[in-house]
Simulated scan of single mutants.
Amino acid sequence: MSEWSFTLLVNQPLTPEQADAFDHCDAFADGSVSYTMGPENPEDYPHRPDPDKLRELSCDIEAPTLLDAVAQVARDIRLIPGLRAVGVRYDDTVTLEGIPEEPRDLLIADRALRLADVLEGADVPPGALRALGLPIG
């Protein structure tokens, strides 16, 4: 198995309650997924954290493929009430001579998570989803 490093984007910054649930969740006990919390009173600080950075989880996951790794964390993050994955970023460092194409697994994972986020709570008939070419189980 390979180890995959990527950034999973979640729907919101973690609340203190979600951070506590995350810290006590067996799925994250190995430390392969980490988060950043902002200060309790950000208005008290001259430099406030970037809110987008607070919606990112750093992941180092062992899995057969990048897609499997992303899917595993996206599934596990739903164990934390109110959190869900909404996208993924793969921050692979490359040289100018060896700029690889974006990994296909990353493209699939990111688009699937973004679509799932848009569909969350939407009333879309299964027939419309099938007509769009989406597999409905």
Results as ranks from 00 to 15, higher is better:
M1K: 05
S2G: 02
T7P: 03
L8K: 02
L9Y: 03
L9Q: 08
L9V: 09
L9N: 04
N11A: 02
Q12S: 10
Q12W: 04
Q12F: 03
P13S: 09
L14K: 09
A19M: 02
D23F: 03
A27K: 13
G31C: 06
S32C: 11
T36F: 06
M37F: 03
G38H: 13
P39R: 05
P39N: 08
P39D: 05
E40Q: 15
E43D: 14
E43F: 00
Y45R: 05
Y45H: 15
D52L: 10
K53W: 07
K53F: 03
R55C: 12
R55D: 01
E56A: 05
S58C: 04
C59A: 07
C59V: 04
D60K: 10
E62V: 15
P64Y: 01
P64I: 02
P64G: 07
P64W: 02
P64S: 05
V73C: 11
R75K: 08
D76Q: 14
I77A: 03
R78Q: 15
R78Y: 00
R78K: 13
R78A: 09
L79G: 14
I80A: 01
A85I: 01
V88K: 02
Y90A: 03
Y90Q: 08
D91H: 13
D92P: 00
L96E: 12
L96C: 11
E97G: 06
G98N: 14
I99H: 06
I99Q: 13
I99P: 00
P100I: 04
E102W: 09
P103N: 10
P103K: 10
I108R: 07
A109N: 06
D110E: 06
D110Y: 10
V118F: 12
V118M: 14
L119Q: 09
A122K: 15
V124C: 14
P125L: 11
G127H: 12
A128V: 14
A128P: 04
L129T: 08
A131R: 05
L134C: 02
P135A: 05
G137M: 02
